[in-house]
Computed example of a mutant assay.
Amino acid sequence: MGKIFETIDEQLQAFIESQQIFFVATAPLSDAGHVNLSPRGLDSLRVLGPQTVAFVDMTGSGVETIAHLKENGRITLMFCAFSGPPKILRLQGIGEAITLDDARFEEVQQDLPVLPGVRAIIHIQLDRISDSCGYGVPQYEYLGDRTQLTDYTERKGPVGIVEYQRKKNRVSIDGLPGLDV
């Protein structure tokens, strides 16, 4: 039976920190817009407080999470236990993309890992923390992180990444504003 929690306690934090992947879901306000669901990994997320989490948002081919957060702030993170006891944890709340040009970026980044190609930190104030059984989630063996994204961003370098963001990250697939590059 699923439970709702007031805060992220030590057990939930340990569960979150033991997961190698989590999923991020956002959506625009328009019924015609696309719901976005993205997998994230690379040890990019941290629990910052009992109702606050943040993760490093790296440069990618889309900018849906940032665009949706700019428009309405709604976000859900989902963690699934692919090994060990079955469990699903959902963190729902209001998120904000703190971009490199934001005066708060350096302060917030201090609590997160430094990864190449970062374009924002997604900072989330949680209003619902819940779990469910996860009995239907298959078991998988973790083999390691892929290096293609970090290798690519390191090869492109800071100037190349900004140019890529200008081409690919200015608007979402639904035409919502993305990065101000």
Results as ranks from 00 to 15, higher is better:
E71V: 03
S130Y: 04
G73W: 03
L45W: 07
F79T: 01
H34C: 11
I122N: 04
M78S: 12
L143M: 05
T147P: 04
Q13K: 15
G160I: 01
D145Q: 12
S130F: 07
A32N: 13
Q11E: 15
G41F: 08
S38T: 11
M78I: 01
E107D: 08
K87E: 07
L149Q: 11
H34K: 15
C80Q: 14
L115E: 06
A67M: 03
D57N: 11
R90L: 04
V159P: 07
E141P: 00
F5G: 02
V181E: 12
A103W: 08
A81K: 06
T65L: 05
D102G: 01
S130I: 00
C133N: 02
I16P: 07
P85M: 12
P177H: 10
V24M: 11
V171N: 14
K3H: 05
L115H: 04
V137P: 06
R128M: 04
I129Y: 03
E96K: 14
I129R: 03
D102H: 08
Q51K: 14
T76L: 03
A54R: 12
N169W: 05
T76N: 08
V159Y: 12
A54H: 08
G160H: 11
G117Y: 12
G93N: 06
I66H: 09
T52Q: 15
A14L: 11
S172W: 00
R40D: 02
S172F: 01
Q110Y: 02
P39D: 07
A120L: 04
K168D: 10
K3A: 13
P113N: 01
F5S: 03
L29K: 15
L29P: 04
R146S: 10
L29F: 07
G178R: 03
H68E: 05
Q139G: 04
R155G: 08
N36C: 06
S130M: 14
S61Q: 14
G73K: 12
Q165C: 15
A97Q: 01
V137M: 10
K3W: 09
Q165P: 01
R155L: 09
S61R: 14
R155S: 12
F55N: 09
M1I: 02
R90F: 00
E64F: 05
R128N: 07
G93R: 05
N72W: 05
S83T: 06
R90G: 00
V24E: 05
L112E: 07
T59C: 15
V53A: 11
V47P: 11
Q148W: 13
